[in-house]
C-alpha cells in the first residue's frame, strides 16, 4: 500500500506544493507541520513580540497557499519563497502603521505574557529583553536578515533569496546588526564557557 499512500514526511516541500495544487489535504498538513512554528516565531519577533498579530499573520500566510497555490513557481525553492511572503507581509505592516510609535505600549504588555520560559535563567531573561529592545532600533531589512539568520537558521543564500538581494548585502546587514547589538549588549558580560 506504500505506493498508494506516499510518506509525506519524506517528500520535498516542492512536491508537497505540487500535491497541494491538486487539493491534497495531507500535503497541506505536512507543510503546516514543517513551517508553522518557524514562521510563527518569525512573525512574533518581527512584530514586536505580539502573539495575536503573529497568529493572524500566520493564518493569512497559510491562507495564501490554500487560496492561490499556483502562485508558487515550481522552478524556485519553496522555503525562501514562503519566507519572502512572510517578509513582505511584515514590510506592508510596517508601512501601514507606524509600528515604532506603538512599540512602547505593545512591548510592555507582550513581554510579560511570553517570557515565562526564562524564569529560571534571569541572566538570559534580561539579555533577551535588552536584545528585543535594541533590535527595535535596527532598520527593518537589517532586523529581518538578522532574525532569519539567528532566529530561523536560514543560510545566507536563502536569506538573499528571501529578501531578493545579493548575498553580500545580507552579510553586510548581519555584520552591522551584530556589531550594533554587541556594542549595546556589552553590559551583559560574556560567560567564559561560551
Amino acid at each position: 500500500m506504500q505506493f498508494l499512500k506516499p510518506d509525506y514526511k519524506k517528500l520535498s516541500d516542492e512536491d508537497l506544493m505540487a500535491m497541494l495544487l491538486k487539493k491534497n489535504q495531507l500535503a497541506f498538513e505536512e507543510l503546516y507541520l514543517r513551517y508553522s512554528k518557524k514562521l510563527f516565531s518569525y512573525f512574533y519577533r518581527m512584530l514586536n513580540r505580539n502573539k495575536d498579530k503573529a497568529k493572524d499573520f500566520l493564518h493569512d500566510l497559510f491562507l495564501k497557499i490554500i487560496e492561490k497555490p499556483q502562485l508558487f513557481d515550481p522552478a524556485r525553492s519553496f522555503s525562501p519563497w514562503f519566507y519572502s511572503l512572510a517578509f513582505n507581509m511584515c514590510k506592508n505592516e510596517y508601512k501601514k502603521i507606524k509600528i515604532r510609535d506603538d512599540y512602547s505600549a505593545s512591548y510592555a504588555s507582550s513581554v510579560n505574557s511570553t517570557d515565562k520560559f526564562i524564569d529560571d535563567d534571569l541572566d538570559l531573561n534580561s539579555f533577551i529583553r535588552e536584545l528585543y529592545l535594541h533590535l527595535e532600533d535596527v532598520d527593518n531589512d537589517h532586523r529581518s536578515a538578522f532574525l532569519l539568520r539567528y532566529g530561523n537558521n536560514l543560510s545566507i543564500k536563502e536569506i538573499a533569496e528571501t529578501m531578493d538581494c545579493p548575498e553580500g548585502t545580507v552579510k553586510s546587514r548581519l555584520y552591522y546588526t551584530i556589531k550594533y547589538l554587541s556594542d549595546k549588549l556589552t553590559i551583559y558580560k560574556p560567560e567564559k564557557n561560551i
Binding site: K37, S41, F117, D121, Y150, I178, L181
Partner: peptide, 23 residues
Amino acid sequence: EAMRINTAKISKAFSMEDDYLLP
C-alpha cells in the same frame, strides 16, 4: 570576542524562546 559571544548568546536565546513559541 564580544561580537562572537553575543552572537552565540542570541542564537541560544532564540532557540530557547522557540520552545515556548507555539502557534
